[in-house]
Amino acid sequence: MSTGNNGTTLTDMARPDHYQWFRFTRLQRMVRSISYILVVALMYWALSTVNIFWPWVWSAPAQIGDMMFRMFPPSLVQLNPILYALVESINIAFLGTLIAIILALPVAYFGAQTVTPNAITLWFARLIIVGTRSVDTLVWALIFVAIFGPGSFAGIMAVAFHSIGFLSKLIAEAIEEIDWGPIEALEAVGASRAHVIAYGIVPQVVPSFCAISILRWDINIRESTVLGLVGAGGIGLIFQGAIDLFQWNTVSMVLIVIVGVVFSGELITSMVRRKLI
C-alpha cells in the first residue's frame, strides 16, 4: 500500500465529487426485503387466524394484576403437605435420574458409532434415543399415568424415560470423541472387549458422564415440580388443587417453595459439579 497520498489532498475537498453509498448491495437488499415481507406475512397470518378472544387480551393486565393481588400474602396454612409433596418431587427427580443413568449406559454404548458392534445395534440404540428424547417428560407422565394410574411411580418412570434419550445421546457423543490411541494399545496387549471398555473407554468418559448426569439431575428437579399437574405425583398436585379451589395464598406459597427448591437445586448441583470435575 502506498502512503495513501494519491494526488488528492484534503485541501481539494472544497469541491468534492458526489458519491452514492448504500449499506447493502442490490442483491442483499432484495434478499432482505423478501425476508422482511415473508416475516410480516407470517406474523399477519398467525395474528389474524389464531383463535384468541381479543376482549380477554385487553382485560389481561387487569386480570393478572388482580390475581397477583389475591396471592398476597402467601399462606402458611398448608405448609406441611406442601413440604411433604416437595420431598416427593425431589425423590421422583432423584430416583428417575438414577434409573435413567443405569439404563442409558448400555444405550449410549450401542449408540456410539465408533464402538457399537454392528449397524443393527447402532440403529436400535438411535431409535431408543430419538424416541425417548423427543417426547417431553410431561407427555411421558400422561402415558404412564394411563398405564399405572396416578401417583409418583408414573412420575419416576416419566422422568426416567425422557432422561434416557437425553443422557444416552450426550454420553454416546462423549464416547465418540475419546482418544483412540489407548484403545489400540490395549488391543495390542491382547485385552478382551470388557477390558478395553473398563481400561480404555470408561476412564476417558467418566468426566463428561458426571457432568451430563448432574446437568440432567438439575433439569429433572425442575421437571418433577410440574408432574403433579397431570397426576404423576409431587408438588404439582397441590399446586393444581389450590388453583382449582382458588386458594391463591396457598398458590403463592407453593410458587415460593418451587422457586426455592429450583434455586437450591442449581446451587447444590453446581457445588457437586465443582467437587467432581
Binding site: 468534492p16 465529487d17 458526489h18 458519491y19
Partner: peptide
C-alpha cells in the same frame, strides 16, 4: 437507518481516498 446527508457521504469518500482505502468502502 444509515441515512447520512449527502455532504457527509461525499466527505467520507474523500477521506477514504486520502487515506488510500477507497477500494475497501464496503
Amino acid at each position: 437507518f444509515r441515512k447520512f446527508p449527502q455532504e457527509d457521504v461525499d466527505r467520507a469518500y474523500a477521506l477514504l481516498k486520502r487515506v488510500g482505502l477507497s477500494q475497501y468502502v464496503n
